[in-house]
């Protein structure tokens, strides 16, 4: 936990510096304007476009330094803890749940929501939850059908369907 605390503070500190640098960016249509010209008070215009994000990012950087000082002096629970940031269970959870979420997202681009939802539900309920096939398939199929009728048919919010698009044309002809 202690190492994670300082690594996170350093990472967030670097992110703050990047945000400060990015806030001072001149508009692309006017490259003659020097970087950071927009972070102060512009006569007649008031504070520039980078004023607010730049100084907030600067405060973010200061808070990261403050966290690092607290870490060095062991003032916070995380900096005193000898426990792991993520133990074995946590790492496995990140892998199987977090991984499945990103897999779900990637799958949407290929088979759309209506292909990805049942795959994700079956994976989660059967593989992670060890539920029986009957319950798993009932919940997965019901959720997919409800989503389709709610969004695509009732609300006319067309969810992405990827390569499965042709399969839905007869359904549209039937219900719309």
């Amino acid at each position: 936990m202690r190492i994670a605390e300082i690594v996170t503070a350093i990472f967030l500190g670097i992110l703050s510096i990047y945000l400060m640098w990015k806030s001072g960016e001149p508009p692309s249509w006017n490259p003659d304007v020097p970087r950071f010209a927009n972070i102060g008070f512009i006569e007649g215009e008031g504070p520039g476009s980078g004023f607010w994000p730049f100084w907030l990012s600067a405060i973010m950087l200061l808070t990261c330094i403050w966290t690092a000082v607290n870490w060095y002096r062991r003032l916070t629970p995380a900096s005193q803890s000898s426990g792991q940031f993520l133990d074995g269970y946590g790492k496995r959870m990140m892998l199987v749940v977090g991984g499945a979420l990103f897999g779900f997202l990637a799958l949407i681009h290929f088979v759309g929501f209506y292909g990805a939802i049942p795959v994700f539900m079956i994976y989660y309920m059967r593989y992670l939850g060890s539920h029986g096939w009957l319950l798993t398939l009932t919940v997965s199929a019901s959720l997919t059908v409800i989503c389709f009728f709610f969004f695509d048919i009732a609300m006319r919010i067309v969810l992405p369907k990827g390569y499965l698009e042709p399969l839905f044309i007869p359904l549209y002809e039937m219900f719309l």
């Binding site: 994700f120 539900m121 992670l128 959720l143």
Partner: peptide, 11 residues
């Protein structure tokens, strides 16, 4: 069971 509720919330 949380193994039904959690994927429902994710979806």
């Amino acid at each position: 069971p949380f193994t039904i509720l959690a994927p429902l919330i994710f979806v």
